[in-house]
């Protein structure tokens, strides 16, 4: 997983996504714009991060989980 380590922690790209979510971005397009990551990386990263319980998805919008909040810098 490109955004989550085998230990379940976010990689540098993962942290960019978490920080974008913290700053208010919620859709993959908004997260890509805020983080500077390509949209395809954001979409695949969000899948990984939902699976790792760092992020949750509701009706196409994404939010940090409590676990995800712990990695905000």
């Amino acid at each position: 997983m490109a955004c989550v380590t085998p230990e379940g922690k976010p990689t540098e790209s993962g942290k960019k996504i978490l920080n974008a979510l913290k700053s208010g971005a919620a859709s993959p397009e908004e997260i890509a714009k805020t983080s500077g990551l390509p949209l395809f990386r954001v979409r695949s990263g969000l899948r990984d991060m939902v699976q790792a319980d760092l992020v949750k998805e509701e009706e196409g919008k994404y939010k940090l989980t409590e676990k995800g909040e712990q990695f905000i810098e």
């Binding site: 997983m1 490109a2 955004c3 390509p38 949209l39 395809f40 979409r43 990263g45 899948r47 990984d48």
Partner: peptide, 13 residues
Amino acid sequence: THGTLRLEDFKGS
């Protein structure tokens, strides 16, 4: 090399 990707991840580009 950038993780698991789907064709659909590229939609819009």
